[in-house]
Design a protein around this nucleic acid. Structure first.
Lengths: 338, 338
DNA sequence: GGATGGGATTGAAACGTTTCGCAGCCTGTG
DNA sequence: CACAGGCTGCGAAACGTTTCAATCCCATCC
């Protein structure tokens, strides 16, 4: 049905090699150029990317494996990534693995079969086992948001300064006199969880505060988890006077839990949240929070991947760390206690 | 680097055709089967999907073109679609066109170059001009959420019963005695906008109410648009006593506008919203609203596409209409006026 | 024991490009 | 006028599969 270069060749009387050269930016005699262009129009020729891929051994496809598509933080990263990659004529195949390591591994294999040129992954499996095959296949692998220790030096990554961000938030609270500071973390063993915990502990140490174990809760990065974690914290005999919540969904859960318990922010409790996402910002506009630069994460990731794709020989893997910002709201005040 | 079937052939002493047959489920003598399986393990052979695509003339890739990836309604559809398609070994390339018809057309062409087997589109360009090329290429096209009139009979579609849904919501209000009912629509000329307007007008007619032009507002399906539209409605001398808001973002905007104006729901104003999306359902849990079955939309779309892909000859295009449901909350009450 | 038949196996061509090495042509110079 | 040298164009092979028609092998039957 569709026209091929062979048809162009017949139509113009030129050799296949000449036609190919024309499409790849080679120099072609003026009259031949015109002849080809006419033939292209006449026959509605479009190059067959599949055939090109077979011959050139590159598909111009990037595989993206993420834990969850229905997550605003992730989609805004993907969206900015896809934008840049497509402009460079790279397609993006997205695989949502529902935070399931088994599915994640299958997704990687699926993409490898398709011979993607590169892989971008927000890792669910912290051991990195799912990426072995990709490394064997010798394609560039780029982690986003979460580092995988066992892969250090073998892959590139774009992350944020988690520990610093958490430290900044907690320090803000200690400076205002808070000593009983609740922390709501994501799932245990996740890179970001650990890093944010480290930042929290460091800030407490700097303020000479001994951490209280029962103030540290895990909310699995879900709204319900956050709700539950905060509800539990409120039940403690010796309640925290301030809260640092380490992602968007849990911050939402936190605010609901507080609303339902009739606890006022900041009068009764100071709160620092995480991630300002489009719509949500308007609902609790006065929240003090840590902002992640989603768009930059996507942009950096896309550009870094393009870089890796260009200089396949230069095996030096880079880790890009982006900084967060603390946005001041009105959800924090000096500690009223003792 | 990577092993090919030729290597397997050499290793096992079998012909290429036999190896191929084995992989495509053909019958192979027991000892040959074993020989092949051993060779596969030994050489770490993985089939090259690109070469297969070239030969079989199908890529097992579905292109998906949407107006916006950072939109929870859309991503939950995509997520359920991708799940089903990948299980059938189809990959999904997502293109976000930022609600820009020009980009939309480019995206379609991009995907066509890549020889996708089918196209799923939530159309930005209501004229359908961007899909001409896809129809010429003779690949199945499936619209979701929005019908395109000019393509009727040429493409399949999965939509919801917009007019019925809107009618149901508005009828609920008229039955409670409301006669001044504000309507907040999306962008003009969008399929869903028109259909929902139709449902509204029908319901008014049934109740013997003459529509008031200034009660009908366009909020462009954005939160800000909804906020603005509702703020304007509140400024009217003869305010509506009830509101029907026709998507999720605008419903959010509506609730904020009402909160800021100190208007109580339902005491001062009855409200029916649209779309219950994960997180935000919890923030306004008592809203009466129309629920769209996102997951079913995705599922139906995926299955319908698979169907189209199987029976390429049967050109009968189907339009699947899914029903919505009215979820009762506490944001509606009988009209206090007159 | 040889013919028959049927299933497994095979070689070769094809899918639509890119690329390599070589041939052809033209221009300008000695 | 012949020849060197630089472009441009060409044929053919290759990328890794699938598939067709033909062949082969083996068991069965007469």
């Amino acid at each position: 049905m569709a026209a091929t270069m062979k048809d162009l060749s017949r139509e113009t009387g030129l050799g296949l090699a000449t036609i190919s050269k024309y499409f790849n930016g080679g120099v072609v005699r003026e009259k031949n150029r015109l002849a080809i262009e006419n033939a292209v129009k006449k026959l509605h020729y479009v190059p067959n990317e599949v055939a090109r891929s077979l011959k050139t051994q590159q598909t111009r496809v990037i595989g993206v494996v993420i834990p969850e598509l229905s997550n605003a933080f992730i989609t805004s990263i993907i969206s900015s990534m896809e934008d840049i990659l497509r402009k460079q004529d790279y397609a993006v195949i997205v695989c949502d693995c529902r935070s399931d390591p088994k599915r994640e591994k299958e997704a990687v294999e699926f993409l490898l079969h398709r011979r993607v040129d590169g892989l971008i992954n927000m890792a669910t499996d912290a051991t990195g086992a799912h990426l072995k095959a990709a490394l064997n296949a010798n394609i560039p692998v780029l982690l986003i948001d979460r580092l995988v220790e066992s892969l250090r030096g073998k892959v590139s990554a774009v992350v944020i300064d988690n520990a610093h961000a958490a430290g900044q938030a907690v320090r803000k609270l200690t400076e205002l006199g808070h000593r009983k500071i609740g922390l709501v973390l994501g799932s245990p063993n996740l890179y970001t969880t650990n890093q944010r915990l480290t930042g929290y502990l460091n800030a407490l140490k700097d303020a000479g505060i001994t951490p209280t174990e029962e103030y540290i809760r895990y909310g699995n990065y879900t709204m319900d988890g956050g709700y539950q974690a905060v509800s539990d914290l409120l039940k403690l005999k010796d309640r925290p006077t301030a809260l640092f919540v380490t992602n968007f969904e849990m911050t939402l859960g936190t605010m609901l839990a507080l609303q339902h318990s009739g606890i006022r922010v900041p009068e009764d409790l100071s709160v620092i949240g995480f991630d300002k996402l489009e719509l949500f910002g308007e609902i609790f506009p006065d929240l003090t929070l840590i902002r992640q630069p989603q768009l930059s994460i996507g942009r950096e990731a896309a550009n870094l991947m393009l870089d890796l794709l260009m200089n396949r020989d230069a095996v030096s893997h880079r880790i890009v760390t982006l900084s967060t910002a603390l946005t001041e709201g009105r959800s924090v005040r000096a500690c009223a206690d003792g």
